[in-house]
Each structure stands twice: as C-alpha cells, then as structure tokens.
C-alpha cells in the first residue's frame, strides 16, 4: 500500500503567531494608522474606530485560528 508522503510545513505555531504579531503591528501603528485617522464617517462610524476595532477583531480571529487549529497542522512538536 503506497502512502503519499507530505513534507510538514516548515513553520509551526510560534512562527504563525509571530506573523500575526507583525500583522498587528502594521494595523495598530503608524503609518497605516495615519491613513485610517481621517475625519470621515462610514455608516455613521468614524473611520479610525472602524479600522482599529475591525482590525482588532480580525487579528483575534487570526490568533484563534492559529492556536485552535488542528494539532497535526502544527509543523513541529511543541
């Protein structure tokens, strides 16, 4: 019986979390923050509020997906 060998992904949870951290830095710090900080409302909500809380929620979803993912997705033993 032949079984297809698959290389485990070279990056495990620690690396993915670090990537999420970098995403957070990009979202929450200037210069992208300057772009979002404008005097306008979208659907009645200030752009900056949408940007920060939306980005925050998106980051939390990413973090949850990374840590609650299937253990065999984890490229390395922890």
């Amino acid at each position: 019986m032949s079984r297809r060998l698959r290389l485990t992904r070279p990056s495990g949870k620690p690396e993915r979390l670090a990537a999420a951290f970098l995403l957070g830095l990009a979202l929450f710090l200037p210069p992208l923050l300057n772009v979002a900080s404008r005097d306008a409302l979208v659907g009645g909500i200030p752009v900056l509020v949408l940007w920060l809380f939306g980005g925050w929620l998106a980051l939390i979803v990413v973090l949850a997906l990374v840590v609650e993912g299937k253990p065999d997705d984890d490229g390395r033993p922890r």
């Binding site: 620690p14 670090a18 830095l25 980051l59 939390i60 973090l63």
Partner: peptide
C-alpha cells in the same frame, strides 16, 4: 493583544 501573540517566545 500584541504581546500575547508572542506568547510562545
């Protein structure tokens, strides 16, 4: 929020 993402380190 950012620092917990670095929890593994």
């Amino acid at each position: 929020t950012l620092v917990v993402a670095l929890s593994s380190v």
